[in-house]
Amino acid sequence: MKKTAFYGALTVAGFAASMASAATLDDVKERGVLNCGVSTGLVGFASPNANGVWEGFDVGVCRAVAAAVLGDAEAVEFVPLTTKTRFTALSAGEVDMLSRNTTWTFSRDVDLKLEFTGINYYDGQGFMVPRDLGVSSAKELDGATVCIQTGTTTELNLADYFRSNNISYEPVPIETNAEAQQQYLAGACDVYTTDASALAATRASFEAPGDHIVLPEIVSKEPLGPLVRHGDSDWGDVVRWTLNALIAAEELGVTSANIEELAAAPTGNPEVNRLLGTEGELGAMLGLDANWAVMAISAGGNYAELFEKNIGENTPIGLARGLNAQWTDGGLLYSPPFR
């Protein structure tokens, strides 16, 4: 670990961390803390509460991975990253994984050498307008001023959508969600566009959410998911299968309420047994404890519990499951089998 005196001193002093991208899993275990990159503040997905504790759906994924690897859902260091710094932070090893509503695209996966480990939220870009504008379709937005968050796929989608529909618009690029909100509420732009989930979250934080409507058009596919560095497949597997475990747990009816009971002894369902480590050696294959999935699921519950607690219909954000329902319920969530 202490390769040179200089870095050794910096490491002890807490200014530097040694990392070897060859084996992130070992690094995380040795460090005892998972460094997880999250958004700088998007209510419902990742935002610090008044006590500075991070909460949200993306945060839940980080905690599940930390619980699976380290057995402690609190052993996470959340690193808030902007759209500009997120990929560099991951590539340079500042964070072990990124769970920051990031869209899976070809060029990010291939050109930027990142590895998406699954999809935790199927999203699409939508538009929000004030109700009194009297607009009911995005096609009526000719000449409108549109607020966009820069550095995301949304500004590319927006340009494509308006271009293909041959209508004009005036973009107002904005760094953070908070400022976009301020601009939109002050009427400096007619429309605010971003992922539909983030729109719902933003709208929920308004004083009078009823005065604003989200237009029916969804103009893009935005599969959001956690990602890791390219070239460390072992670590990628850990993150991928932790996410799958959360999804499979819902499908198999394993919740944070009944997991202790189910994990205590082998049950009648062999797949549940394999998932919970009472049968087979799936944990050891990942290089984790046998009860890795038990820890991950108990951290914040299975996929459905995370969803309902952070962004579901009973929260201020109020998102319906929609595409994010299990495949058995007509959604797209489909975990590969644990076998």
């Binding site: 759209t83 500009k84 990929f87 060029s107 990010r108 050109d111 930027l112 820069t150 550095g151 995301t152 500004e155 590319l156 690029p173």
Partner: peptide
């Protein structure tokens, strides 16, 4: 800003 973000 935008170019840096989009191309990485």
């Amino acid at each position: 800003g935008i170019t840096l973000n989009q191309t990485g």
